[in-house]
């Protein structure tokens, strides 16, 4: 009986310290993120009327905005498909290349820190406000200019060869610029794998390919899942995706101020959620198999 009380108090204490640690963050999250999200939900189902006194009069409009998006907005479906295609193609490319690059970095004896720093560099450089304005102004120019020498060589090849090559080339730049964080995470994961496991495997005569699929990949799986989620969110948050542009273009619509773009951004969130679900299903740990 005595033991039981003690256990309960310990557990309560544990919960209390946990809550105490969480409090500042919960308050912040609620005030600056969750409440605004809820508010935008409200806006997406209302007609808003802005009073001169500064107040906002909201009248319930039901699913009006959503219906309009699907039936009347000619831009929505193309923007949606465009964004889906962009994220669905880029995410696997970013993941595969970060795994490859992280493994290469892991095999390099000298200057690993230096190389890794360089791969993280674009993350540091691109995000500046002036820089993003600059890239936004002439995004295409930056890519073209970057590819200048090689581009011409590839372009001179027959079209069947050059088109996919150019596509990959354009995306190589994108991939490298957006995989800084992912490389760091996977490299940290790689460093945690015990070296004796590799040694045992190579003594048993496993090939490099087998070692990758039987040892490295299963160990990295949680890290890759984390990177997959991070990548999808990171790409979706780019202000230059077609859907994000559609959202910000519609913010100031005079007839349906804020409501319409609130509804759009909710749909966008839903799309991102579905994609995250797919990522999760593909990359989650397969427990049943390990039990065998």
């Amino acid at each position: 009986m005595k033991k039981r009380t003690k256990e309960t108090t310990l557990r309560t204490q544990n919960a209390l310290t946990g809550l105490a640690f969480l409090t500042p963050w919960i308050i912040g999250l609620a005030v600056f993120t969750l409440y605004p999200i809820g508010y935008s939900m409200m806006m997406s189902v209302s007609n808003l009327e802005f009073k001169i006194s500064g107040g906002i009069q909201a009248t319930f409009a039901g699913m009006d905005m959503y219906r309009k998006i699907f039936t009347e907005d000619a831009n929505f479906i193309p923007a949606l498909l465009n964004t889906l295609k962009f994220i669905a193609f880029s995410t696997p490319m970013i993941l595969v290349s970060s795994v490859i690059l992280a493994m290469l970095l892991n095999k390099v004896p000298k200057g690993r820190g230096f190389f890794r720093a360089l791969f993280f560099f674009p993350v540091v450089v691109i995000s500046g406000p002036v820089m993003s304005k600059l890239i936004g102004n002439d995004a295409t120019m930056l890519i073209q200019a970057g590819d200048y020498g090689v581009y011409q060589v590839i372009k001179s090849l027959p079209e069947i060869i050059s088109t996919p090559l150019l596509y990959v080339f354009d995306n190589v730049v994108l991939i490298l610029w957006y995989s800084g964080v992912q490389i760091l995470i996977i490299l940290a994961g790689l460093q945690k794998i015990n070296k004796p496991i590799y040694e045992a495997a190579s003594i048993d005569g496993a090939s490099g390919w087998q070692i990758f699929w039987k040892i490295t990949f299963p160990h990295l799986r949680p890290m890759i899942l984390l990177c997959g989620i991070y990548t999808v969110v990171d790409l979706a948050a780019m202000p230059s995706t077609a859907l994000a542009k559609l959202v910000s273009d519609n913010v100031e619509r005079t007839d349906m101020m804020y409501s319409y773009s609130a509804a759009l951004s909710w749909l966008y969130t839903l799309v991102v959620l579905i994609m995250l679900g797919v990522v999760f299903l593909l990359l989650k740990e397969r427990k049943e198999k390990q039990d065998d």
């Binding site: 999250l29 993120t33 969750l34 605004p36 999200i37 935008s40 969110v233 979706a236 948050a237 202000p239 994000a244 959202v247 910000s248 913010v251 773009s261 609130a262 759009l264 951004s265 966008y268 969130t269 991102v272 959620l273 995250l276």
Partner: peptide, 9 residues
């Protein structure tokens, strides 16, 4: 919160 499109907030 992570997934929500920032511009609308």
């Amino acid at each position: 919160a992570l997934m929500f499109v920032g511009s609308m907030l």
